[in-house]
Write a protein that binds this DNA or RNA. Structure first.
Length: 471
RNA sequence: GGUCCCAUCGUCUAGCGGUCAGGACGUGGCCCUCUCAAGGCCGAAACACGGGUUCGAUUCCCGUUGGGACUACCA
C-alpha cells in the first residue's frame, strides 16, 4: 500500500477516563496497521477540553498502552501544548472569510436547541451571526466555521465503503470557544495534517464528524487522509460498552489476572479475523493484519471467550514466568509477604501443575495457597463428604506409612497408595480423596501424588495429623 | 425528530452466485480418570423479512423491520 510514502497513523484518546476496552481495540488496530506496513504509530492526547482532562488519566492511558505492549513511535503529543498553532489557523480562516465570530450566548444556544428538539426539528445552528458586517466590540465571541450548505460530501471509507452526506445537514460548528480554546473537530484536522497522518483509524462513532472535518481540510486547501471507521464494541445488551457492563478499564483486567497478550488476542478478534484462526502470536498479528479483514458490524464483548483465551495463554506460558506473574497476586491475597523470598524454582513446579486448571492469575494464586501455606482451611462440604470416621482411620494408617517413607516422590507415593488400596480392597479414590481434602482443603486439585511431592513430606504429615486429631 | 452505520448459530466469526452454510466461545452427551482440569469424539444451535436481478441467491440491488452511533462553546 502506498509504496514510497510512509504510513503514519495515530491513536488520539482524550484523557477523560482510563484506557477502556474500546479505546484499546482502536489503539491496537492502529498499532498493527502501522507495524504491518512498517509505518509510524503516533500517540496524541486530545486534551482540549481542559475542564474534563486530567494528568492522572494521561498517565493511566500510557500505563494501559504499555501493559498491552502497544508501543508507539512518537508522542505522546498534547494538544494543550499546541494552542498557539491552532489559534493561528483560526485566524487564517477568519481573515479569509471562511470562519466568523459568533456572539450568541451559550445559554441562548442551548435554549434554541431545546426548543427545536421539542418541536421535532433538527437542532441546527441558524447561522444568525454568519453575515454580521462588523465585529461587535467588547462582547465575548466564539468562532464558527462556515460550512458549505450545498452539494454533498463523499467519504471513501476503507472499511465501510463510500458514504454520502448532504452538506445542508451540516452546521456551522464552533472551532474556537469564547475562552480561546479550540474544539475537537478543528484541532483534529490541524493535527492530522501537521503530523502527516496518512490513515485515520478510529471508532465509527466518528463517522458523522468526518464530513465536517473534510470541509475544514478543504478550507485550508489540504488533501484529507484516508479514513477507516471501526465498528463499535457493545455490551451484552447491545448498547455502547460502558461501566454498566462491568469492567471496561483495561487495567481492571490486569487486576483480575488476565495476561496482556490474551486481552490483545481477544480484542483483535472483535472485528477482525483471519480465516478460522483464533490464537495468534504478536508476530502473526502484525504479519496478517490488514483492513481487508476488518468487519463492518458492531460486536458484543464476550467475557466468557476472553476467559477461555486467557486460560489458553496461561497454559502456553512457561512456568517460571507465570510464577513471577503470580507473586503480586499472592501478596494481595496475603499468602506471602511483600519482599518475602520465594524459591521460584520450587514455585514453578507448583505452577506447572496448575497451569491447565487456572483461567486467571487470580485463580492460579488461589490454588497456590495449598502449596505455600503451612496449613489449609478445609472446605466444609468436602470435609463432610470425605473426612468421615472410616476415612480418618485410613488416614491414620497412611500417616504411619508415609512418615516412614524415605523416598517422598510422586512415583513412590503412587505405588504406596495403590498398594494401600489393594490390601484393603478399596478403590484408590476412597483413600485419595480424603488425603486430597486434608492436604489441599478441597475436593479438586492437580494429580494427588504430584501435589504431595511438591508440598513435601513435612507439611503433608502435619496436615494429616491435624485432620486426624480434629476428627 | 434528523443524519449516518450495521444485519450468518446465544456470542465472536468464515463465506466474496452453485457449500451437507465452516470454525471458535458457551452449552448437552460420551471417552480418558484418584478429584478437578486439560485433551479427544459426538450433538443441539444461524443466513431478520419482502421484493427484484439471475438458470441459480446467505452472497448483488431496492424496500421493510430490528439494532447501534452521532446530533454540545465533549471528544
Amino acid at each position: 500500500m502506498n509504496e514510497g510514502s510512509k504510513i503514519r497513523v495515530r491513536f488520539a484518546p482524550s484523557p477523560t477516563g482510563h484506557l477502556h476496552i474500546g479505546g484499546a481495540r482502536t489503539a491496537l488496530f492502529n498499532y498493527l496497521f502501522a507495524r504491518h506496513y512498517n509505518g509510524t504509530f503516533v500517540l496524541r492526547i486530545e486534551d482540549t477540553d481542559t475542564t474534563r482532562s486530567t494528568e492522572e488519566y494521561i498517565e493511566a492511558i500510557v500505563e494501559g498502552m504499555k501493559w498491552l505492549k502497544l508501543d508507539w513511535d512518537e508522542g505522546p503529543y498534547r494538544q494543550t501544548d499546541r494552542f498557539d498553532i491552532y489559534r493561528n489557523y483560526v485566524e487564517r480562516l477568519l481573515m479569509e472569510g471562511k470562519a466568523y465570530r459568533c456572539y450568541c450566548a451559550p445559554e441562548e444556544l442551548e435554549q434554541r436547541r431545546q426548543d427545536a428538539l421539542a418541536q421535532g426539528k433538527p437542532p441546527k445552528y441558524d447561522g444568525r451571526c454568519r453575515n454580521l458586517a462588523e465585529p461587535v466590540p467588547d462582547k465575548p465571541f466564539a468562532v464558527r466555521f462556515k460550512m458549505p450548505q450545498e452539494g454533498a460530501t463523499i467519504v471513501n471509507d476503507l472499511i465501510k465503503g463510500p458514504i454520502e452526506f448532504d452538506n445542508n445537514v451540516l452546521e456551522d460548528l464552533i472551532i474556537l470557544r469564547s475562552d480561546g480554546a479550540p474544539t475537537y473537530n478543528f484541532v483534529v484536522v490541524v493535527d492530522d495534517i501537521d503530523m502527516k497522518i496518512t490513515h485515520i483509524i478510529r471508532g465509527d462513532d466518528h463517522i458523522n464528524n468526518t464530513p465536517k472535518q473534510i470541509h475544514i481540510y478543504r478550507a485550508f486547501g489540504w488533501e484529507p487522509p484516508q479514513f477507516a471507521h471501526l465498528p463499535m464494541i457493545l455490551g451484552a445488551d447491545k448498547t455502547r460498552l460502558s461501566k454498566r457492563h462491568g469492567a471496561t478499564s483495561v487495567m481492571a483486567y490486569k487486576d483480575m489476572g488476565y495476561l496482556p497478550d490474551a486481552l490483545v488476542n481477544y480484542l483483535v478478534r472483535l472485528g477482525w479475523s483471519y480465516g478460522d484462526q483464533e490464537i495468534f502470536t504478536r508476530e502473526e498479528l502484525i504479519q496478517y493484519f490488514t483492513m481487508d479483514n476488518v468487519g463492518k458490524s458492531a460486536s458484543v464483548f464476550n467475557p466468557e471467550k476472553l476467559l477461555w483465551l486467557n486460560s489458553q495463554y496461561i497454559m502456553k506460558e512457561d512456568a517460571k514466568g507465570l510464577a513471577e506473574a503470580a507473586v503480586p497476586f499472592l501478596i494481595k491475597e496475603g499468602v506471602i509477604q511483600e519482599g518475602q523470598q520465594l524459591d521460584i524454582q520450587w514455585l514453578s513446579r507448583a505452577v506447572n501443575t496448575l497451569k491447565e486448571r487456572s483461567r486467571t492469575l487470580v485463580e492460579l494464586a488461589a490454588s497456590l495457597k495449598y502449596y505455600i501455606l503451612e496449613y489449609v482451611e478445609i472446605d466444609s462440604k468436602a470435609k463432610d463428604k470425605f473426612l468421615k470416621p472410616e476415612n480418618l482411620k485410613h488416614l491414620s494408617e497412611l500417616h504411619g506409612i508415609l512418615s516412614g517413607l524415605p523416598d517422598f516422590t510422586a512415583a513412590e507415593l503412587e505405588r504406596v497408595f495403590h498398594a494401600f488400596a489393594d490390601e484393603r480392597g478399596i478403590k484408590l479414590g476412597a483413600v485419595a480423596q480424603p488425603v486430597r481434602v486434608a492436604v489441599t482443603g478441597g475436593a479438586a486439585s492437580p494429580g494427588l501424588f504430584e501435589v504431595l511431592e511438591i508440598v513435601g513430606k513435612e507439611k503433608v504429615l502435619k496436615r494429616l495429623s491435624k485432620v486426624i486429631s480434629e476428627g
